[in-house]
Amino acid sequence: MRVSTRAGLVALLLLWSLGPMLWQLYTSLRTPEALLASAGGLGGGWTLANYGAVLSGDPPFWRYLLNSTVVGALSTLLTLALAIPCAYALSRRGGLLRLLVGGGLLAAAVFPYVLLFLALLQVARQLGLANNLLALCLPYAGLQLPLAVLLLQAAFAELPPELEESALLEGFSLWQRLRWILLPLMGPAVVSTGLLVFLFSWNEFPIALTWISRSELLTLAPAMARIAGSSVYTVPYGAFAAATVLGSVPLLALLLLFQRQIVAGLTQGAIKG
């Protein structure tokens, strides 16, 4: 491919990927009058008021970000705590059980989980978990377990078996083998799996939407939907755009910091399949 052709294609790709986001950024910095006057105009009408409005709302926007972060972090920890032993045990087994559990996990991993929301909501109401931010971790961990176990299982299976056997003969207990030998070597896989779980929990919509109704407990995704459907943020879109920008920034940071691990995690998933 000629260099100029390629440069053109790359520019097109970046325009397509980043354009909508840059447009949000632009919109968020414009006054309502400027937006109504001319789409894409650059003269006059710049403002930070949209951000002020969003951040001084009730509750302030950073509250949603905080809620999402807390839920995401706890879900990630819970998922890893459950998935690591399960993946270890699965990787050390052969035969039918592994095949069956593996197949079941793959089916669950691709299952459109939105179908489950009603039953999960009923469970939450019966157990008094509705409007409990931390309780969201339970369905989130459950929903992400299949993918997490599959990824970690593949990582366990890649470690040379002699390493663990050697530790076994040295007298290490199961916990000691995991703590000192296996997990340190699986660092990258654990990090990338954790990141995928975190992204899911941060972005999850239908369950958070139905479990949480008190506005100060909302996570980011249902908060955005509520903003979209409410009249608190008046016409036109400056405040919406400021909200989308604020909602995107933490993830952009995460992605830029951990791009390599996220890519590795997805890639492993593909190879596994």
Binding site: L163, S166, L169, I181, P184, L185
Partner: peptide, 19 residues
């Protein structure tokens, strides 16, 4: 159990803990 046999083994791949 292997851990209780007081047996040491040198593996062909050496199985040194790489980290």
């Amino acid at each position: 159990k292997p851990a209780r046999r007081r047996v040491a083994m040198v593996f062909q791949s050496y199985a040194l803990y790489p980290h």
